[in-house]
Design a protein around this nucleic acid. Sequence first.
RNA 1: GCCCCUGUCGUCUAGCUUGGUCUAGGACAUCGCCCUUUCAAGGCGGCAACACGGGUUCAAAUCCCGUCGGGGGCGCCA
Length: 427
Amino acid sequence: MVKVRFAPSPTGFLHLGSARTALFNWLYARHTGGKFLLRIEDTDKVRSSKKFLDEILGDLKWLGIDWDEEPLCQSQRFDVYRQKAEEILAMGNAYKESEAVIFKVEKGRQVEVDDMIHGKIAVNTDDIKDQVMIKSDGSPTYNFACVVDDTYMEITHILRGDDHISNTPKQILFYEAMGLTPPKFGHMPLILGQDGAKLSKRHGGVSVEEYKKEGFLPGALANYLILLGWFPGEDREVLSLDEAVKLFDINDMSDVQAKFDIQKLRWLNGEYIMKHKTEELLPLIKDQLLTAGFDISGITDEYISKLVDLYKIRIKTLSELGDLADWFFRDDFTVDEEGKKKYLEKEGNRENVKIFADRLEGLEDFSRENIEKICREIAEERELKAADIIHPTRMAISGKTRGAGLFETMELLGKERVIKRMRGIHK
RNA sequence: GCCCCUGUCGUCUAGCUUGGUCUAGGACAUCGCCCUUUCAAGGCGGCAACACGGGUUCAAAUCCCGUCGGGGGCGCCA
């Protein structure tokens, strides 16, 4: 049975690259009916914290990743590492130096790795220094603990980032020293920033948490991350985790590093938003509005839902709704000055809005159809273009030059607020 | 410096294993048109790539060699 693992270090947030690594391991396990395990690499007592661990696990769940069995914590296995190192020492393959236990690397031979993604990789041991297994303070080094634990956990396949390629021969040497057969390795290329350098803070968001806050949907982020390095075939791009599990094939993974393209992620997110049911979007949208400082206490879910229905095809992230539709939540909405100049300063336009407002006063059933009818009637009577009524009116009620259709927007806002705002521009 | 990975449109990629079907396909972005009350969405179309140089071959994006470029690693960090 396939057994893979994801081994985060709780010394910081979950990086997009790590999330991608986790995703592919999970995909491989679920596709093959194997197990996906977690191992917490918290050997660095100073930098590790519970807070980071909770955040990382929370982000994994948020992305749709679940794991089998309880996570293994390295901090609780120091005795095991020391014992294994002692065994190697006893066999004469290591030596001690200032309390540290150091593995003796046999020179002049080749270590070969049959990488699942790259194919054969060969390294000469002349290029590998002797390796510390146990540090002077008694804690294990990364490479050593990794091998001891992967053995203990019976990991069959190790799928990790390209940056670990040079660790692999060192680890294989440990496996050999302990008389073990190494698992299969697969190294996936790293994600790069737009400028081709390793994806880092200066490229914008690098943590899953940041994208979550921005209003990206987990499905969209996971979908995008998966696409960065794996091609599902048949020009498929938008696919759920379930579909990805079915289609996943490690042989289709790319061996070339890819640049992170926020534009494509935004597009994908937009696709997910518009296809999502409004009722599923609602709680997420409300969270966004709340953090953005909108007071939505007096507004019903039903009412906000209507706004979401109107806007979900127009936003790429959930946080954009607040910017685009602040007029829905407050009377002191922001006004597009360019648009104001263009539509409200234009000769006759304010007058058109006034006439429109006057006629709307007497309208009983304030429906989009009726509103539109009146608008078109006025245009015809006065030989105007409907646009000369529509644009200034949109400016008057929303302060924006863009947004949902005017008549449905008016219906949504309600007669009273609409007329008040239309008259407001004459002051 | 040494070691390793890698190089198809601006970006993600299909094609490369089994050379000809590739005047290189799709998607994002971009540009134009249609629809239209704006913005989106949708529809249609345009621009745009085999890093370079040598081979091998009747024929190379596909095979071989070299050059150049990009990335990663060389910690008693993980």
